[in-house]
Simulated assay, not measured.
Amino acid sequence: LTETSPVLCVNLPNNINPGTVGEAVEGVQIKVADDGEICAKGPNIMRGYFKLPEETAEVFDEEGFFHTGDVGEYNELTKCYAITDRKKEIIVLSNGKNVAPAPLENAIKGSTWIEQVVIVGNNRSFVGALIVPNFEKLEKWAQEQGLNLSREELVKDVKVEKMLLKEIAECCQSFSAYEKVRRIAILPRELKASEGEITPTLKVKRRIVNAHFGDFVEGIYNRPSEETCAVPEEKVTK
């Protein structure tokens, strides 16, 4: 970060831990706030934004710690920090629980059945997911199951949803109960950079995805529990 000039942590030669940003550099204090945000204090931290006192006040707390906007965790054994998400990406459930979508999405994408996934659930009672399956593998599986269905029919089929939910559950065993995906919507096409849904580096643009597939999200939360995903007919053909 520019505000931290710019290093807070580093993996030292005698303490390299893949998947982490390392331990705090000498002279820097780091704390993980109650909401998981990583905060830092030290001689390398900026004094403030030039002639922007209100913006400066927003990023410093009463103890003088700078709030980085990154969400992470600290490992007491290795003394290293790991970044798990950006705070602005955090999903807050209706019960107040915070869910970091990136770790969930990364875990789910470890499945060979899943090509793309977007976690949803802000202000909702449980976590849901928009899923783009590996259609080649899914269509082969469907034929083996005697399901002679088109792609448009596959994304609405209850057997397909149950199979994918089981696969997702296997991927998410290490997560807390409130973080686990309880229901999904299967999208009929992949997310595209040309539609503004992902960046050229394949990062999801959540606001745009939620706008383009809002009906699918609503289908996750509004349909009866015994039904498969409510896929809007006009959306399926796109």
Rank of each mutant, 00 (worst) to 15 (best):
V117M: 02
E136P: 05
L149H: 06
E227Q: 12
D61A: 06
G42S: 07
E105A: 15
L138W: 03
E170H: 15
K88P: 02
T84L: 11
E55N: 15
C80M: 04
N122T: 13
V127E: 00
G121K: 01
Y81I: 05
D35Q: 13
V204F: 11
T199R: 06
E195A: 09
I168A: 01
G121Q: 01
E190C: 14
M163Q: 09
E234C: 08
T68C: 05
G64F: 11
L77S: 07
G196V: 04
P133M: 08
V127D: 00
E167V: 15
S125E: 08
P13T: 10
T20D: 02
K51Q: 11
K79A: 13
A24G: 07
V118I: 05
G96Q: 07
R207F: 11
K235D: 06
F66I: 02
K109M: 08
E233D: 15
A24F: 04
D61G: 03
W113A: 09
N15G: 14
G121F: 00
N95R: 12
L93S: 04
E152S: 09
H212A: 08
A107L: 13
L93M: 10
L138N: 00
E115A: 07
W141F: 08
L77C: 15
G36R: 01
A40T: 14
V204E: 00
I208F: 04
R223L: 06
K192W: 13
S111H: 06
G72K: 02
P232Q: 10
I30A: 06
D34T: 07
F213N: 01
A100I: 01
P43F: 13
K192R: 12
F126H: 10
D157F: 04
S225Q: 12
I30K: 02
K166M: 12
L93W: 03
G128P: 02
K109F: 12
E23N: 09
M46D: 04
K31E: 13
N17A: 09
H67T: 11
G64A: 10
I119C: 03
Q29R: 06
W141L: 04
N98T: 13
N95M: 08
F66K: 01
G27Q: 07
S111I: 04
E55P: 00
E73W: 03
E170Y: 07
E161G: 02
E37G: 02
F135V: 04
E63C: 10
A193P: 02
V236I: 08
A24T: 08
G64I: 05
A102G: 04
D34P: 01
A82R: 12
M163E: 07
K205Q: 10
V7Y: 10
L130M: 05
E170K: 12
Q116C: 11
L77K: 14
P200V: 12
E62R: 14
K140P: 01
E58W: 13
G69D: 03
S111Q: 06
E26Q: 07
S111G: 06
G64T: 11
P43Y: 14
W113P: 01
G64E: 12
K140S: 14
M163D: 04
I16A: 09
L147M: 09
I114C: 04
T199K: 05
A100K: 01
L149D: 05
C229P: 03
L149P: 02
R47Y: 13
V10R: 10
G110C: 06
V158A: 11
K156M: 15
G22S: 10
L154Y: 00
T4F: 12
V127N: 01
E197K: 09
D215V: 03
E153G: 04
N98L: 13
I114L: 07
I186D: 00
